[in-house]
Nucleic acid binder design. Structure first.
Lengths: 319, 319
DNA sequence: TTGTAAGCGTTATCAG
DNA sequence: CTGATAACGCTTACAA
């Protein structure tokens, strides 16, 4: 494995001159520079990133930490982040589980984007406090160098439910996600507030867990109920899909017997029968804008506007 | 940001003793060790990974390089890899695009798992040649330190098509993926061979691109054809989904009018109407076994059996 | 324009 | 059991 030393020797210059040339510093004579570049090429030399990182105290890496690799909603956020970071000359490093903590604690990244409940506020605050900008997308944390960009769950679900009431529905149920989920809780708040403002005093509540399987079980349960809700609002699309599957199996027609809707606009919603009504976030744009804000913070140390992602109601066939 | 120097000073020992204690070397006296650990804790000390990596010439990171973050099939492979690497004490770093090349060339990872056409054979061979074990999952490369683990596309598609012939189908078409795709080409080979062995001399061929959108367009085209194929085998599930959507819109019934099937067993196949017949790979297991082989290679420098992933035919309702 | 040398934060060799 | 010290491969004052 050739080092800069080998390149310098081959080109007949000192290590520092080699370094200057390889880093495109203007001071070095064109001829020597060429000699150095040729030597590097012929040796198939690449700088050792680790050594550079140690010296410069920068890695050029941005960590994106997710709670798992399954699940369809991440992909677009990640892709948006990736595209933007590439433009800004950063490497993207996506990780999950124990690795995430390691990479943060050992400072193998210059900044972080978080989408993982399992990373504690403490861990993140500690990382951020050492001058590493951090964006959190799955909760709100206050702290030095730490910023949140979260969906306005409450507002958009509120609007959606009121729209459904205008359409004539009045008998609602809520199929929840996990109780400790930021997104779920805010969606439920919006749901309740809408009912309240429409003077609807009662609603059923089903405990789900954001999975298809969970929605499916609730669907089986609902199928056996004497008095079924007319509209089940599901805290995410996957719950809705499971629910819909169970209802279909029990010959309960959607939306004629029971209407339903979800959240996330996962791409398969459009391919179901009936097509799923949902609330969509422009994940690609969200990813890009967060990545841009982070890049600005790292490069210029100044915080530009952090756009919160906008939600959009997507009416299809399930209600 | 505290360094080992600060810890040593606080504990009243030399740097090297601090290092010994922090790395659990047996030689250090329990009492001093405790003092050092306490000091580290009170300073909130974490070793600087970069510095350690430079000295030890190991990063503890495994790079997983994918062609993009979208697409459902990756997630399970990634999750399998993640689980296994975590057990083996490695960090997982998933990356894509330009970053992948950077991380490889700058040796920020100890080994790599590849799922990305855009990384050239040359780049991978170069990386691997410097004693970094590399597993390639999306093609076959021969070279020092470089190993392939690929799906037996040909064999399983072959078996599937022959099974369909037994069921009575004889008029087949192939909806392809991109022409330069390893998976697509081998699936097509299996498809053709099966027809040949069944003495079916002719078949239609539609050029797709592995996307829902692509499948949808072909579906619209087929809808207008005078003489439609009886069975369209799709090179992946997403193509099949797009195709199915178009057919439904044109009131062509699946499987009564046209039967179809895909490849990948993406999870939503089960939630479509009709449910999609497909060929499934146990991606989680695949990811785990590749990660295990890579870990063995890095730790023991010895190559254990590389399991090729097994495919399974999953008959549902679309044919 | 080029070279010398210090130093980034560790680990590891060697001596005590 | 503990401490000096060199070294990992690079960047960057500073000197020439």
């Amino acid at each position: 494995m050739p080092t800069i030393k080998d390149v310098a020797k081959k080109a007949g210059v000192s290590i520092s001159t080699a370094s200057y040339a390889l880093n495109n510093l203007p001071s070095v004579h064109p001829e020597t520079k060429q000699r150095i570049l040729d030597a590097a090429k012929s040796l198939n030399y690449y700088p050792n990133g680790i050594a550079r990182n140690l010296k410069t105290k920068k890695t050029g890496n941005i960590g994106v930490f997710v709670y798992g690799f399954s699940g369809p909603i991440f992909s677009d956020v990640l892709e948006g982040i990736r595209q933007n970071l590439q433009e800004n000359g950063f490497n993207i490093i996506v990780s999950s589980g124990k690795s995430s903590e390691n990479l943060l604690n050992e400072r193998q990244v210059d900044g972080a984007i978080i989408f993982d409940n399992n990373l504690t506020d403490e861990c993140l605050k500690n990382f951020a406090s050492h001058d590493f900008p951090t964006f959190v997308l799955d909760r709100i944390i206050e702290g030095k160098n730490i910023y949140s960009s979260v969906i306005d769950n409450e507002g958009i679900v509120y609007n959606f439910i009121r729209e459904m009431v205008k359409k004539g529905y009045r008998d609602f149920a809520y199929l929840s996600g996990p109780n400790d989920s930021f997104n779920n809780n805010h969606r439920y708040d919006g749901f309740k507030q809408a009912l309240k403002d429409e003077n609807i005093n009662d609603h059923k509540y089903y405990q789900g867990d954001f999975t298809i399987q969970g929605g499916y079980q609730i669907g089986q349960q609902i199928g056996l109920e004497e008095k079924k809700p007319r509209f089940v609002y599901c805290a995410n699309d996957e719950s809705a899909i499971g629910l819909m599957k169970a209802l279909r199996e029990m010959k309960i027609h959607v939306p004629k017997d029971i209407a339903l809707a979800g959240f996330d606009n996962i791409y398969l919603g459009e391919y179901l029968t009936p097509k799923l009504t949902t609330i969509g976030i422009d994940h690609l744009k969200w990813g890009k804008s967060v990545a841009q804000a982070l890049s600005d913070l790292i490069k210029d140390k100044k915080l530009n506007e952090v756009k919160h992602p906008e939600g959009q109601i997507i009416i299809r066939e399930s209600c």
